[in-house]
Design a protein around this nucleic acid. Structure first.
Length: 465
RNA sequence: GGCGUCGUGGCCAAGUGGUAAGGCAAGGGUCUGCAAAACCCUGACCACGGGUUCGAAUCCCGUCGACGCCUCCA
């Protein structure tokens, strides 16, 4: 039984989708006006892992992740660099999607964009006005009326009376209440704009997510995810809009990931303490970032430090060590030993599921995998044959795959394999004759080419670095 | 100021009433021509102070500290 921590109720709840066997899931994507940073990667990875586990559990997962491709910052940025705002957004969307692929994040079922959802957004705004939840004061803006719904603030645990101190009204706004927020923004000259019943303008940030949910998943969804910095006001406002419009509970399980911490602070565009995904991937493979995420609780802050990255990299290599083949001359182990390894693989599967069922406890799931790694390596050391190792290795590969780890490195230059094996054969002849200098030369030169030789009692093995 | 999360070995980090998973690093050992890898062994009484309990890292109160949100933000 899967249990998920629900931000709305602040407790773990049994997961029960609206429709048996189907999960409707929406995750807030980035506003595309700059290079995405590793914090965005963390969020994408967290919900990719959630999604993969739900698939593993047998659910048909409809996964929607939006791109906010029109807003103040995009317009501002485009103006500064003299680029068309749509071209700017398109550039960063392409870049982000490429990076998600590098991180082995499954592509969303749909990647909607605000600019492609304008009719639905307008329809929703119109509906909210008709129901009295929104108003157009006549300056071209349309605002949501927060005082109309008594449960406004239920997600973030706030009350309107307590929030007013921080609220602000900008010049030109005509709000009834300081906390009212824009559903539609009147266009200023030169800005991207769409015709609407309220004049030329563009959608506010919050309404696009409500409209996309409605358009692509329906009135009610199972899981809504995002960073915990979106709880207020973004998700609070989404709930207000959607529930006011449909009259139904919007989301069953609200999931929020913790913030990635750099130097003790949240990594964010506004603070400027950034490591972009591009920079990270230049130094490390995508699975390293994933290991970093897996090793900690998704709801807690993630320490992004050189030491943690190093540990993630080594841990990944350790997982891979279990997939190395049996020694060339392995004699095999007793049937009971092989059987015990098989049982261990099964026990690992159970421990893995138990951990993941408990609100996606990936750190505990990883621990289970490491136990299996040790068992496999021990069996290999004892002389297990490839056939004897196989079942446990397959289990490891399968469960790691559920976490989105790719363990198996791509086969580099398969053409060279016979030549490497030839060199090993020759080198072993040299070793028999105790010609150590020549043997070591071959090993060193191969290492320089990225090929590691390891001499064991049962023969010499090799692998790519 | 308000709301919320958190403080576990050198680092990352599970556990949330019955005497502390896992990874990284470190030290020792096995194997080995050497190297590498793998394997084995070694380490914390859980921020601090009270309280509840037969028993608490785990529940309650307080103190200190960190972080997030309250304005755009994954």
């Amino acid at each position: 039984m899967l249990r998920i921590y629900n931000t709305l109720t602040r407790q773990k709840e049994e997961f029960q989708p609206l429709e048996p066997g189907v999960v409707k899931m929406y995750v807030c994507g980035p506003t595309v006006y700059a290079d995405a940073h590793v914090g965005h990667a963390m969020s994408a990875l967290v919900f990719d892992i959630v999604r993969r586990y739900l698939i593993y559990k047998g659910y048909d997962v409809r996964f929607v992740m939006n791109f906010t491709d029109v807003d103040d910052k995009i317009i501002q940025r485009a103006r500064q660099s003299g680029i068309d705002p749509f071209a700017l957004a398109e550039h960063y969307i392409q870049q982000f999607q490429e990076q998600l692929r590098a991180l082995n994040v499954l592509p969303a079922t749909v990647h909607p964009r605000a600019t492609q959802t304008i009719p639905q957004i307008q329809q929703m705004i119109q509906g909210l006005i008709e129901k009295g939840y929104a108003y157009a004061p006549g300056n071209g803006d349309v605002y949501y009326r927060v005082t109309r719904k008594p449960d406004y603030g239920k997600l973030s645990g706030r009350k309107l009376e307590e929030m007013q101190a921080g609220a602000r009204i900008e010049v030109g706004e005509q709000k009834e209440h300081p906390m009212d927020f824009a559903l539609w923004k009147a266009a200023r000259p030169g800005e991207p704009a769409w015709d609407s019943p309220w004049g030329k303008g563009r959608p506010g940030w919050h309404i696009e997510c409500s409209a996309m949910n409605l358009a692509y998943l329906g009135e009610q969804i199972d899981i809504h995810g995002g960073g915990n910095d979106l709880i207020f006001p973004h998700h609070e406002n989404e709930i207000a809009q959607s529930e006011a419009y449909t009259g139904k509970p919007f989301v069953r399980y609200w999931m929020h990931n913790g913030m990635l911490q750099l130097g003790g602070e949240k990594m964010s565009k506004s603070l400027g303490n950034l490591v972009t995904i591009e920079e990270f991937l230049k130094e490390h493979e995508g699975d390293v970032m994933r290991m970093l995420v897996l090793n900690s609780n998704y709801r807690a802050p993630l320490s992004f430090t050189p030491e943690a990255i190093e540990a993630a990299e080594k841990g990944l290599e350790r997982l891979r060590s279990a997939l190395r083949p049996a020694a060339p001359a392995a004699a095999g182990v007793a049937a009971e030993v092989a059987e015990a390894l098989k049982n261990q693989a099964e026990a690992t599967r159970q421990a893995f599921e138990q951990a993941m069922d408990d609100d996606f406890n990936t750190a505990a799931a990883l621990a289970a995998l490491f136990e299996l790694v040790r068992a496999i390596n021990t069996a290999r050391d004892q002389g297990a044959t490839q056939e004897q190792l196989q079942p446990a290795q397959e289990m490891l590969l399968r469960l790691a795959g559920v976490l989105g780890l790719r363990l198996e490195k791509k086969k580099e230059a398969p053409d060279v394999v016979p030549f490497v094996e030839l060199l090993i054969e020759v080198r072993n002849e040299l070793r028999k004759q105790k010609l150590w200098a020549l043997s070591d030369l071959i090993r060193d030169r191969l290492k320089a080419l990225g090929i590691l030789l390891e001499d064991t009692r049962e023969g010499t093995t090799w692998r790519w670095e």
